[in-house]
Amino acid sequence: MKIRIRFSKTEDLRFISHLDVMRYFQKALRRAHVDISYTQGFSPHPVMSFASPLGLGQTSEGEYVDIEVGSSQPSAQMVERLNAVMAEGIQVLGFRRLPDTGKTNAMATIAAADYQVWLQPEEWVPRASCLGYWESYLAQDAIVVHQKTKSREADSDIRPLIQEAQWREDGSFFLRLAAGSDRNLKPEAVLDGFFLWLEEAGALPQGQKPALRIHRLDLYGEQDGKRISLEDFGEDMV
């Protein structure tokens, strides 16, 4: 049966790469004696697929890995078993069974991601005096940013990919951004664009960009035109 595991990545574990997380889970699942299914062949490896990789240095409470198992205990017990062998910075939050049929692959179903972002130091961009710029930044018809990927470099409009954006009273930003393999927007791009906007308005001295502390809250997929958390594609086993 197919299982979706939701986990967090926090504290010092934010310094380990996506590749290291994948290796970490292979070992953790063995330590917890999860009855995971293996590929065939001479060097069988566990069947697992991870959702959207998280950038180095970022934390999250909405990470996902799908696995296949031959047997399982109820969800609550599996969560407990896994957390007994986890590092402090990675906690298993859910262990749910996915429907056997239908398009459920974690990476393929992703449509959006929620982030919370803090500025460091905050006082470089005071909310009280800059909130107006934030609103005018978002009110643009198009937000054209220069983006570099491994293969290409181009100007693109990110405005349609910002589904929700708020600058909260606690000073943090809440962002709901398009995510997934074809249309993916990183929270850094939204804030870098904002800093540029501030610079152009003379509200931020050149070169004095605050650092970003980025936390992913959850990943979402789409089903029948509705946005649902990746976790809710599965059901708790009782």
């Binding site: 504290e11 010092d12 574990l13 310094f15 380990i16 790469s17 290291d20 070992k27 953790a28 330590r31 180095l56 240095g57 062998v85 590092a87 402090e88 910075g89 650092a211």
Partner: peptide, 26 residues
């Protein structure tokens, strides 16, 4: 939570920050 010897800033510039953060299993 342990306090790291290196700042986040320095760690994120490093080639492999996990060489310096410890906290491994066991």
């Amino acid at each position: 939570m342990r306090k790291l010897a290196l700042s986040e800033d320095i760690l994120l510039q490093a080639e492999k920050p996990a060489r310096y953060t410890g906290g491994e299993i066991n």
